[in-house]
Amino acid sequence: MKQIIDSFYQKKIWVYVLLCFLLLIVTIMSLSIGSSYIPILELLKHLVGLSDGQHEFTINVLRLPRLLLAFFVGASLSVSGLILQSIIRNPLASPDIIGITAGGSVGAMLFIVYIMGSISIHWLPLAAILGATCVAIIVYGLAWSNGVTPLRLVLIGIGVSAAMNAVITLLIVVSETSVTTKAYLWLTGSLYGATVQDVYGLLPWVLCFIPLTFLLAKTISVLELGDSLATSLGVNVQVFRFTLLFVSVALAGSAVAFAGGIGFIGLIAPHIAKKLVGYTLHSLVPIAALVGGLMVMIADLIARTAFLPLDLPAGVFTAGVGAPFFIYLLYKNRHI
């Protein structure tokens, strides 16, 4: 018995149990709470297919896609941040702070304003990823001077974000009024009006890149030991780092494409995951994905229900929690 308990603690199974339990609770709450309340019993009946279908529209069309999208977006952003923090070796790195999210927004905005009429919306993630990749390359290149120091990367990322935000403002100002309001809502990071199509649009990216990160995790841990040691252990550091950067950018970019700039998830969720399971990257990837997904789900639940009938963007709540947390991190790392 003791052995089982020990392994339970060592393997941190309790973390998975806890997170899955939370996931279940948040899922039930999200499906039942809203402008119309669905009692839990009714909800369960519906889920097992015993109801008369009166909540079909509310659950299947409105709430479930939104919930799933929130989870996948959060998971993508969180894993993206986790990768960045590892390869930059800086706890302050995250896709929004170094400008990757802003780049994704520019790509998506360009698509919405200029191309959307002629091409299917399914290409939107590609536009966002393209934008995010361009910005990542620009920031990385500008921060390069005999290697990249984390702080220079963060500073230049902040500068490039400012330029990207200027471009976004410009695009909003030149676009038509009907686009403006939509674009503005989207930029804040909102899951409003999520559809099943959105979920299917994001799913391939998540299913492709999060398992890939999981497979690469061991090598990432080697990379964290330092470039020279990693090289001597047989890792092609430059190629590997570039691959990881691309995976991180692709995850952040596709999340941005569907939910806009939900800020600070890529920063906080990996930190919470590290607190929960320590620094072994192998188990960090799934935990970070779960934590990130949960956070966006909770943020969206609050944003959707706290100020009924208003439906606020979830990004407001993630920023409300994330900015103070970022400041706390700055304080904690003050001696670096």
């Binding site: 702070i97 809502l185 606020l312 990004g315 407001v316 409300g320 900015a323």
Partner: peptide, 24 residues
């Protein structure tokens, strides 16, 4: 660096709150 980063965080916070008000 710390001041710039704090500034970025404070900006992000206020910008996001502003956006919330505008969405309302």
């Amino acid at each position: 660096i710390r001041v710039v980063l704090s500034g970025a965080a404070v900006s992000a916070l206020f910008v996001s709150f502003t956006q919330a008000l505008l969405v309302v």
